[in-house]
Amino acid sequence: MSPVSLRRWGWIHKWSSLVCTVFMLLLCLTGLPLIYSHEIAHLLGNEVEPPALSTPMPPGNVDAVIASAKELYPSKKPMFISQEADVPEIWNVTLADHMHDHDYKPIAVDARTTKVITEPAFEGGAFMSTMLALHVDLFMGLPGMLFLGFMGLLLLVAIVSGVVLYAPFMRKLDFGTVRRERSSRLKWLDMHNMLGIVTMVWLLVVGATGVINTWGDLLLKYYQNNELAQILHKYEGQAPLPHTASVHDAIETAKKALPGMRVAFVAFPGTDFSSEHHYGIFMNGSEAFSSRLYRPVLVDAHTGELTDAPELPWYLTALLVSQPLHFGDYGGQPLKLLWALLDIATIVILATGLYLWLKRGKAAKAAAKAEAAKTMTAGDVPALARGQEAS
């Protein structure tokens, strides 16, 4: 590679890295506790455990579950109900005045006895909800998500340009060499390069999936205005009828439509995951990875009849696949530990990159001052000589 090309790639790597470094550090620092969100919620006492029963009981009626939750807040409406695959004894009911109400009321209800267990902390408590908001949108909603997505794209550019620059560097040294006997700056440069190339594939995966996740709201809106709108064409222009169909029966209808799958969550009419006329019942598989891939079933909320069980389009499937890959929460504790270690390594990469840039700036300023002093000294010699001659 020619020196001109190297300088061009160096400029790309330098500025793409510098622009996104602070935000990537923030995402790494907030992402670390999110990897262990369940464990932290448990330590903070925010994880809900199903009550122990003296005798085993089958699941109760879901309508009774919803009624128990509504007794606490009669004026609010159910927005969602959900179940964790590993805790089928609990239904999580979310109540609110409307879809975009910020005063959500999450309520955990025993799926067997249909009695309220507790009102858990929203999003796992204040600490975890703050970490999640900072990681997802910087408390700025869609603009914040898109901004972080742009920072993610810059990270991908920085990774690719870093690999291009590392290729000629590798011809001079053995892989993984850290020249500890040389200057401090050179040692940290070697550490930065070594960690960067070791974590390259992981960074590409996490960076790319993070960018895809920031487009989630836009992809969902596109789906609603296109594929979903075509499915619901016959309801166009019709006022919603009273939602009199049993949620319990709607779930049973969904199970019959997709045998072998389980209910992950139910979106009520008027929410972003359904229509004004339907219960959106989202089913998934039972395996670690397939449990993150949803299949929607639309059941008429007035008649209780099945409307459709469409396959999700490829772009929503890509979004759903990107989420477990981004957080590494589909492979148990070993994968979580690997994700955490790679996250810490990335923090070191970003910190050393910032250190090297600051150090290089100081070195350049010192060199400029030395050169200026040298030039000034050389320029003073003739004047001094002329002064001696005059005397």
Results as ranks from 00 to 15, higher is better:
residue 67 A to M: 02
residue 111 A to F: 07
residue 115 K to N: 06
residue 137 D to E: 15
residue 76 K to R: 08
residue 79 M to N: 01
residue 119 E to N: 14
residue 154 L to R: 00
residue 134 L to I: 04
residue 81 I to V: 09
residue 118 T to V: 10
residue 116 V to L: 05
residue 73 Y to C: 03
residue 120 P to I: 09
residue 133 A to R: 15
residue 117 I to R: 12
residue 86 D to V: 03
residue 138 L to M: 08
residue 97 D to R: 12
residue 99 M to Q: 14
residue 73 Y to W: 08
residue 92 N to T: 05
residue 74 P to W: 03
residue 152 G to S: 09
residue 92 N to F: 11
residue 122 F to V: 13
residue 134 L to A: 04
residue 135 H to D: 00
residue 96 A to N: 02
residue 147 F to T: 14
residue 78 P to R: 00
residue 147 F to C: 04
residue 118 T to M: 06
residue 101 D to H: 10
residue 127 F to G: 08
residue 83 Q to I: 10
residue 68 S to Q: 07
residue 141 G to R: 13
residue 133 A to E: 11
residue 111 A to C: 05
residue 142 L to E: 13
residue 125 G to E: 01
residue 82 S to I: 09
residue 94 T to R: 12
residue 94 T to N: 13
residue 134 L to M: 10
residue 147 F to H: 11
residue 102 H to N: 15
residue 91 W to V: 04
residue 66 I to F: 02
residue 141 G to D: 06
residue 75 S to I: 06
residue 144 G to R: 10
residue 132 L to A: 06
residue 87 V to Q: 01
residue 73 Y to A: 00
residue 73 Y to I: 01
residue 82 S to H: 00
residue 96 A to T: 09
residue 145 M to L: 15
residue 125 G to D: 03
residue 150 F to A: 15
residue 132 L to I: 12
residue 129 S to T: 05
residue 69 A to I: 00
residue 152 G to R: 06
residue 79 M to G: 02
residue 105 K to Q: 13
residue 87 V to G: 05
residue 67 A to C: 07
residue 65 V to R: 04
residue 80 F to L: 01
residue 77 K to D: 06
residue 64 A to S: 11
residue 79 M to L: 15
residue 142 L to W: 14
residue 91 W to P: 09
residue 65 V to L: 08
residue 141 G to Q: 11
